[in-house]
Lab assay of single mutants.
Amino acid sequence: TELRLDINGREIKVDGADKETLKELLKLAEKNNDEKAIRIIRHLLER
Rank of each mutant, 00 (worst) to 15 (best):
residue 23 K to R: 13
residue 8 N to E: 05
residue 3 L to K: 05
residue 10 R to V: 15
residue 13 K to E: 10
residue 7 I to R: 01
residue 20 E to W: 11
residue 35 E to V: 13
residue 31 K to S: 11
residue 46 E to T: 14
residue 40 I to P: 00
residue 9 G to M: 02
residue 9 G to I: 02
residue 3 L to N: 10
residue 36 K to G: 08
residue 3 L to H: 14
residue 42 R to T: 09
residue 39 R to E: 08
residue 17 A to F: 08
residue 47 R to N: 10
residue 22 L to P: 00
residue 28 L to M: 10
residue 6 D to M: 15
residue 39 R to S: 09
residue 29 A to W: 02
residue 9 G to P: 01
residue 8 N to D: 10
residue 9 G to T: 01
residue 25 L to K: 00
residue 45 L to G: 00
residue 40 I to L: 11
residue 11 E to P: 06
residue 32 N to S: 14
residue 40 I to Y: 11
residue 33 N to H: 09
residue 19 K to E: 11
residue 35 E to I: 12
residue 44 L to H: 08
residue 6 D to Y: 15
residue 30 E to W: 13
residue 22 L to M: 05
residue 7 I to N: 02
residue 41 I to L: 14
residue 46 E to L: 15
residue 2 E to G: 07
residue 14 V to T: 03
residue 13 K to D: 11
residue 31 K to R: 11
residue 5 L to M: 05
residue 29 A to Q: 00
residue 10 R to P: 05
residue 8 N to P: 01
residue 34 D to H: 04
residue 45 L to R: 01
residue 28 L to P: 00
residue 29 A to L: 05
residue 45 L to C: 02
residue 25 L to Q: 01
residue 37 A to C: 03
residue 2 E to F: 12
residue 28 L to Y: 11
residue 22 L to R: 00
residue 25 L to Y: 09
residue 37 A to F: 04
residue 29 A to C: 05
residue 29 A to P: 00
residue 35 E to R: 09
residue 38 I to A: 11
residue 40 I to Q: 05
residue 38 I to W: 09
residue 9 G to V: 01
residue 18 D to F: 04
residue 30 E to N: 07
residue 11 E to R: 05
residue 4 R to V: 15
residue 18 D to N: 07
residue 1 T to L: 10
residue 2 E to N: 07
residue 40 I to E: 03
residue 33 N to V: 05
residue 24 E to L: 14
residue 18 D to R: 03
residue 16 G to L: 13
residue 2 E to V: 06
residue 45 L to V: 02
residue 26 L to I: 04
residue 14 V to K: 01
residue 12 I to S: 02
residue 20 E to S: 07
residue 20 E to N: 07
residue 9 G to D: 04
residue 17 A to M: 08
residue 43 H to Q: 11
residue 43 H to E: 09
residue 38 I to G: 04
residue 10 R to Q: 15
residue 42 R to Q: 07
residue 6 D to Q: 15
residue 40 I to N: 02
residue 39 R to T: 09
residue 39 R to P: 03
residue 36 K to N: 12
residue 3 L to S: 08
residue 5 L to Q: 03
residue 23 K to Q: 10
residue 29 A to T: 01
residue 45 L to W: 02
residue 42 R to V: 08
residue 46 E to V: 12
residue 24 E to F: 15
residue 2 E to Q: 09
residue 8 N to R: 02
residue 38 I to Y: 11
residue 15 D to E: 06
residue 26 L to Y: 08
residue 15 D to L: 08
residue 30 E to Q: 12
residue 8 N to H: 02
residue 7 I to E: 03
residue 1 T to S: 11
residue 47 R to Y: 14
residue 30 E to L: 14
residue 39 R to Q: 10
residue 9 G to F: 03
residue 10 R to C: 06
residue 28 L to D: 05
residue 29 A to I: 02
residue 1 T to Y: 13
residue 25 L to N: 00
residue 26 L to E: 01
residue 35 E to L: 11
residue 1 T to E: 14
residue 14 V to W: 03
residue 18 D to I: 03
residue 33 N to M: 09
residue 43 H to I: 13
residue 46 E to Y: 15
residue 11 E to I: 12
residue 30 E to G: 05
residue 7 I to A: 02
residue 15 D to Q: 06
residue 6 D to C: 15
residue 47 R to E: 10
residue 37 A to R: 01
residue 33 N to R: 10
residue 28 L to F: 08
residue 45 L to S: 01
residue 16 G to M: 14
